[in-house]
Amino acid sequence: MALLEVKNLQARVEDKEILRGLSLAVNAGEVHAIMGPNGSGKSTLSYVLAGKSDYEVTGGTATLEGEDLLSLEPDERAAKGLFLAFQYPIEIPGVASMTFFRTAVNAVRKKRGDEELSTPDFLRFVREKAKELNIDQDMLKRPVNVGFSGGEKKRNEILQMALLEPKMCVLDETDSGLDIDALKIVAEGVNRLRAKNRGFLVITHYQRLLDHIVPDVVHVMAKGKIVRTGGPELAHELEAKGYAAYDNAA
């Protein structure tokens, strides 16, 4: 059984069909990349998997370890082990980062049947993970993402990923807005989290990120479905030839 299995998924926002029968399967331990032109529905896929209410699923299924994801609330999906790293992490003025992290970690632990972490244990846990990602302690004292640079916001996403210990990570254009140094730090953070019981779906427009997070499988998405699947070499081909061939596909 695949870790994440998406079959013939169809979704729309308002009256616009965006996903038109998308299928893919990610096994535990694998890293899959989805590449595709702008407007192909890549971000929509990530939001639909995470449960954003603006999107209406009109057909198909998505399961995590065989369990239906689509009928769950967003927080229940997170507790089951799905994690979405946002393309545009949200600023939350007035909510301290530490309060946010602790509330999230303990909510997820509670639902998974684990004991909540005590304050000293939690602080130790966060500091250790933050250090690995080169995240300044000062950042942790600020409200969530407020005043963070693009790179800091993305590193903060990876930190949350590390804290929540998900099974399936979806990274939505994590490379957008990053310079090469920030990109390397983020990629290292992700690579450190690669594990045989964990899967990744890396959504990106450019091949650049995939030099640092090397995928096992590359999918090409166009007009709301997967139109081609191959190995890492497919990413290089796309980089050389562009998406023109896929704009009229499907």
Binding site: A50, D54, D75, A78, F86, A107, Q160
Partner: peptide, 16 residues
């Protein structure tokens, strides 16, 4: 709604 979704995507239940 976007703030709420962000928090919920991190496992925090709606009321919380």
């Amino acid at each position: 709604d976007d703030l709420l979704f962000y928090l919920r995507a991190r496992g925090i239940p709606k009321k919380e």
